[in-house]
Amino acid sequence: MSDKPSDSSSNAGPIFLVGALAVAGTALGVVFFAADEMGESITYFWDPTQVVEAGSAAIGPDIRLGGMVQAGSLTWNESDQVVTMTVTDNENSLSVRCEGAPPQMLREGIGVVVEGTMTEAGTFDCDRLLVKHSNEYKAATEDMTAEERKALYKTVEGYEGL
């Protein structure tokens, strides 16, 4: 084969094109068609409602829980390095306890994804806390004081070492 001139297989080009496009199109079609269904089974995180509905089945295995930090629920105990908060999807909410210093973006009203396990007590024990930012980009407002602007980018002590 390798002895043949370089344009030996030129006639096969269009056949390969049709074949590759057919395979690619089918693959893409399957993914597009199944994306909604797959959203259910291939899930990156569960929301509180799904965890609540799963009931006792959710207790034990490692799961990811995603939702919003409920206003007024966030506490940070610096000496014990523990964060507690309520994670909600506006239908159901779960209390979550995380050890370790949180990411500096963590605040009330922001999205979070926490990894950990549900306990018998009905609270979520998390060992990894991620903050989910929205795709909204807004300018810091003009009437903010220098102090408030600084507060936009605060973190907690100990974060650096994580």
Partner: peptide, 13 residues
């Protein structure tokens, strides 16, 4: 949106 948790300012720059 609430401000960040109290703590030390870290240079994200």
């Amino acid at each position: 949106m609430q401000p960040a948790l109290d703590g030390v300012v870290q240079g994200g720059e």
